[in-house]
């Protein structure tokens, strides 16, 4: 579904990603872990071109998205993204946040999008918050709504950029629970996370990034039970 070849990204003279090769299949739940500065977020943000790669190609559902001729806006409608800082639109109500994109992109009528939004709000456990504004909600609630907003586009893959890192500890669980349900429903997911428990129990594959490369990867059982790379061993001994 997503095919990454020789992906490189440099900010000025600073190389963040140095030639990543990776293939993500439909239905996979890939957790990306690693120390800060290892390039995990940059890698994720390259997948929907929020960061413009400086080298290599990314193919999504058979289309080369790094080709300047590709209509990236169209492809992004099929890739949902959830941010560390939620990034809900503060001037719009929860309902308007969710239905803005589907309506403005003429994928649904206002009524259809409204119905879909209410259905998604029920799914993330906040059916009574449609008319609330983001500032009235807790961090956990905002992130659940951000997930609903991304799902409203019916994406084929969901990208999560440290979705629980900005949350108070008691709110992490409610967000992970929604993500777990999403995974159970068969959604393809790429999750940059520091939640090792989540990576272990939900991911079908775990990637360890270090200094702009994928240093090690594997199924969670082997990955956490029997790490090979010395940097991974060191990392896991610190975080587990």
């Amino acid at each position: 579904m997503i095919d990454v070849k020789n992906l490189e990204k440099a900010f000025g003279g600073h190389r963040v990603l140095s030639g990543i090769n990776e293939h993500i299949e439909k239905g996979e739940k890939v957790a990306v872990i690693g120390p800060s500065g290892s390039g995990k977020s940059t890698f994720l943000r390259c997948l929907n071109l929020l960061e413009q790669p400086t080298g290599g190609t990314i193919t999504f559902e058979g289309v080369d998205i790094t080709d300047p001729k590709t209509d990236i806006n169209k492809l992004r409608t099929r890739m949902g993204m959830v941010f560390q800082q939620f990034n809900l639109f503060p001037h719009l109500s929860v309902l308007e946040n969710i239905r803005l994109a589907p309506v403005k992109l003429k994928l649904m009528t206002k009524e259809q999008a409204g119905e879909k939004a209410l259905e998604l709000l029920k799914r993330v456990g906040l059916p009574d918050k449609a008319d609330a504004y983001p500032k009235q909600l807790s961090g956990g609630q905002q992130q659940r709504i951000a997930i609903a907003r991304a799902l409203a586009m019916n994406p084929d893959v969901m990208l999560f950029d440290e979705p629980t890192s900005a949350l108070d500890p008691e709110m992490v669980g409610e967000v992970l629970e929604i993500m777990r349900e999403l995974a159970d429903d068969g959604m393809t997911m790429v999750v940059v996370t520091h939640e090792m428990g989540f990576a272990r129990s939900v991911a079908t594959r775990v990637l360890f990034m270090d200094e702009g490369n994928i240093a090690e990867q594997g199924e969670p059982e082997a990955f956490f039970g029997n790490p090979q790379h010395p940097r991974l061993k060191e990392f896991l001994s610190k975080v587990l």
């Binding site: 929907n48 929020l50 806006n73 409608t77 941010f83 809900l88 803005l100």
Partner: peptide, 20 residues
């Protein structure tokens, strides 16, 4: 982050500016 959220949903630059 506001414009990134808009763009990640598939809105164009101009739509993101105008609505968000």
């Amino acid at each position: 982050g506001q414009s990134e959220a808009g763009r990640s949903l598939g809105l164009t630059y101009v739509q993101t500016m105008g609505y968000i």
